[in-house]
Design a protein around this nucleic acid. Structure first.
Lengths: 340, 340
DNA sequence: CTGTTAGCGCCTTCAG
DNA sequence: CTGAAGGCGCTAACAG
């Protein structure tokens, strides 16, 4: 509400000082004696003073608002945690988030960015809901921006994405450590970084353990349950079927569960499974629980805000960084030793 | 970015008029001839003028920012759509959303609300991620507020929640129309409106069709997959087991699928299932697809913003409203005629 | 119909 | 160490 809340001048009057002194006292700036500073703070608190950010932003050119633009806050269930991470980090910095959603429509996105700029956001988190390459909208040139779950070829922009290859290696190491050597990969077909990265990790892990790559163990499909079921059915029908499956994501893994069921195989006795997403509604619900690699959504959200804050502050370490975040393994019950 | 963008005075100079004329021309107010209005608009566009909302908000007491406070944006996957609905409706009103997340912690929530108020939000959407009764934080008294997926006993506050009882009736009517008379209810145990509402709907639908209520067909558990599985197993073990199950939500329904499987029952041949949530990642993924009642998340988001806008505008119909939104049935493959 | 003139609430040189 | 004064960019009376 924009009512007549108490302002800096009321505080000044009550404390018997000038508005300047109040401003300095509260903002930590200026040369104020500790005594007055304390007194002013107490008076302000007593009066229930709260600054008007509109006014201070107008004057100081710092709105303390960060714009958060994403392609689809909604459809994906992973989304929430990146927003949460960003929001909590922002709150810790005395910043607040203004969110805008493009629904993958660049006209809507541009309009949203315009709105953010009109509200004088200090910077922008440009987020995607799954790892992908992006081109920054022209309207954002000159605006401090950090890419989240998105990457570009620009080295002057900070960005954070999951370490896709590392995620796959982690999953594979877990399977190999359990004794598996014949491990299938249920891959997806979209042209996104995760597709390449996870396959690369799959192959790298095999190579690291001297296990030959067998193309017949790799099947692909759309990254959803039904295609995962079909792909898994194909590879499980092989005479020399794999004893374990690394799945592109939890939805495909759910398909693999169904395929295993249809083939009369029991998990993990006959088939071990690891996948990526750690999407709890699925991973926890499946029987047995699905061991899965978690994507660091919350952490990426935090990192993006902190990076942006550092760049806005012009700190020493403010050179742009492009980082890949590690993805931890979340153990459940879908992995066991190979049969026999 | 808060750089020296072109301001209203540059536009005025370029158009050869005063700043007042520019302001009126662009905001549609004042008495300006159509000719000058047009000319000014063109000049402004040519100069790529965009208003500084900080300044206009400071002056006009209208920030065009709506605060969105919710308990948990993240953990639940339903969340996204309410934010999306709200965001799109806000954009249509030339408003923008500032989000704050309390993580169910009232101290964090109060801090967040403070931040929103400091930024002079015009009003607040106070949202919960699932239907529940709330008490409005004291800090919000006097602030235009609309409750979303939340209700209170205050009649001076607008609110929107799903029609829980209607949802259950819709589900039951579908089952009854398919020929079922022996229908079980897999209920939950939390003390939330949905618990009462859906059970009431279950009973009402039975009564409307002259089917006696049989307590043995009602089993309850926590609203998750494993408890759903257990509860369903109990009722399916009955000598005279139900031919259909109405489940509290999709996660419990997934448990019912598993229980059916374990009991050697095939869906929908031996057992029909309808539930609530239409949580696509589950409902679409289950085999066969799960027929489910959709909760109107997106629509509630839109409605809340529109209601707030109406109240802010002080329109004729601005008396607070407490509404229940209908919940549509989404057909998939989990319902068939009763066996034999 | 259009222009002049004050501020909105705060920050920030610049003097004391 | 503290106070006075001038805007930030825009809107809204009030005059012309």
């Amino acid at each position: 509400m924009m009512s007549k809340r108490v302002g800096i001048r009321e505080v000044a009057a009550a404390a018997g000082v000038s508005v300047t002194t109040v401003s300095h006292s509260l903002s930590g700036g200026g040369q104020i004696s500790d005594a007055t500073r304390e007194r002013v703070k107490n008076v302000a608190e007593g009066l229930n003073y709260a600054p008007n950010r509109l006014a201070s932003g107008l004057r100081s050119k710092r709105s303390q608002i960060i714009g958060f633009v994403s392609d689809e806050i909604s459809t994906t269930p992973y989304a929430g945690n990146v927003l949460l991470g960003a929001q909590e980090a922002a709150a810790a910095n005395d910043q607040v988030l203004m969110v805008v959603n493009s629904n993958r429509n660049s006209r809507i996105e541009d309009r949203g960015i315009d709105a953010l700029l009109q509200h004088s956001v200090d910077g922008i988190i440009y987020a995607r809901m799954y790892h992908q390459a992006v081109e920054l909208p022209a309207a954002l040139s000159g605006v401090p921006t950090v890419l989240l779950d998105a990457s570009s070829d620009r080295t002057d922009l900070s960005s954070v994405v999951p370490d896709e290859e590392g995620a796959a290696v982690t999953a594979m190491e877990h399977l190999i450590a359990a004794g598996h050597r014949r491990i299938g990969y249920l891959g997806n077909i979209d042209e996104i970084p995760a597709t390449r990265g996870r396959l690369a990790g799959y192959r790298a892990a095999l190579a690291a353990h001297g296990i030959p790559f067998d193309e017949s163990l790799v099947t692909v499909g759309e990254s959803m349950t039904a295609p995962g079921r079909d792909a898994a059915s194909r590879v499980l029908a092989l005479a020399d079927r794999p004893t374990a499956l690394f799945c592109f994501n939890d939805r495909m893994a759910m398909g693999a569960y169904q395929a295993a069921h249809l083939a009369g195989l029991e998990i993990p006795r006959d088939l071990s499974i690891v996948s990526v997403d750690n999407f709890e509604v699925l991973a926890d619900a499946l029987l047995p629980g699905l061991t899965s690699i978690a994507l660091p959504h919350y952490e990426m959200g935090r990192w993006a805000i902190e990076r942006l804050a550092a760049e806005l502050a012009g700190e020493a370490d403010s050179a742009p960084q492009q980082i890949q975040m590690p993805c931890p393994l979340v153990l459940r019950q879908s992995v066991g030793p190979p049969p026999r």
